[in-house]
Design a protein around this nucleic acid. Sequence first.
DNA 1: CGTGATCTTGAGGGAATTCAATGTCGGTGG
DNA 2: CCACCGACATTGAATTCCCTCAAGATCACG
Lengths: 221, 221
Amino acid sequence: MLTQASLPSNVIKARHAGADTGVGAIEMIGTMMSFARNAEIYGEGEEVEFLYKVISGTVRTYKVLADGRRQIGAFYLAGDLFGLEAGDDHSFSAEAVSDSKVLVIKRSAIFALAARNSDVARQLWNLTTRELRRMQSHIMLLIKSAHERVAGFLLEMADRSAASSEFDLPMSRQDIADYLGLTIETVSRTLTSLENAAAISIPSARRIVLRDRAALSALSG
Amino acid sequence: MLTQASLPSNVIKARHAGADTGVGAIEMIGTMMSFARNAEIYGEGEEVEFLYKVISGTVRTYKVLADGRRQIGAFYLAGDLFGLEAGDDHSFSAEAVSDSKVLVIKRSAIFALAARNSDVARQLWNLTTRELRRMQSHIMLLIKSAHERVAGFLLEMADRSAASSEFDLPMSRQDIADYLGLTIETVSRTLTSLENAAAISIPSARRIVLRDRAALSALSG
DNA sequence: CGTGATCTTGAGGGAATTCAATGTCGGTGG
DNA sequence: CCACCGACATTGAATTCCCTCAAGATCACG
């Protein structure tokens, strides 16, 4: 356990239920920070200094290619941990999709903790393997057709939301497009098409109701 | 499929230069096995029991969707480690692309070693982060155009080959297509087009000579 | 209400796929 | 030795899917 003296004055000792995410003690020490919509949390190329936990809101990680194309690597919802990357520097940038509260934990504190506490080490490992699985399913999405990608994305978001058959999309169509490797128009048209096929309904642009999960699953390849 | 019974009698204590791959002691104990072209090394859904090091030949990991589409997750060349996955079960299958020799190491032996030897633990971590980076760049490939994917793939293979400007492709066009999320025809056409553009030459189907690496880089997005 | 941002819809074109045929290479048996 | 065969690769033609460019529609917010 770290001593009070070793921490900045504004540290909050926040206690959260860790069982749901399986990460326990890691997030028990950190600083709460707020980020406005579209605010940068960290930038590509910066040193990896912190681990982050989304308390409220949504975060996206992304990379911009030389020609301006943007690829979104992941969306992180409330409860998700992010910021742990391969190597010492961030290969992605992170931004708040909507106004967000994020618990910021010093990486060095975690690694110090992990060295002495095998439970923490295992939690770090769990976090990493979860990230690996996430990337694998992202790859499986990206090889599919537009309909399959969008259907798969909706199912993923539904699984990650509390109420699994009805939820709000925190991100714009552009964000979804950049996550799925499609254009904004294709995303929009595909959503409309899924609605016409009675697989979903879209009471408002950001609200999704799953009407026929089986049809969506079949569509998602 | 491997059985535990096949291991004890013929264990080889193999010593390899570990500096190049940064994995040192991990591969010092294991069993050498040979796999014929297209032979299965492990199957999707099987328990993760071993870690593997390619000694010679090439290995592919892949997943087959319900409708028969195959996605190749990665190619592993001589010197590469593979088989370490998120979770207790393999989410991909692994096959020999060409006749291959593979060093098979018990997972439990490695983890036992890692528990006592922090150097081994760090090597395991390095292996994992390398896998994360590989997946990230795979994702970045998959959002691009066919020309960019193929150009990027060739550059990747060149970097991983000894002679970086001229090399043999161990895998078929179908393998490349399934790795890049394209059809075999598109891969073939794109290679021909790159040759016509004087970026590469293809003395034989499996042989690639990089003629204009700058052009390829530009093409690869 | 206006104004800008976001989203949807339409028309047309281009890129990749599909279906089909031909070409090439390595191995095997006559 | 070489002719044949099967596997692999290339090429062609037509189609489909997604993108681009463009115009409206809707929504959030001052």
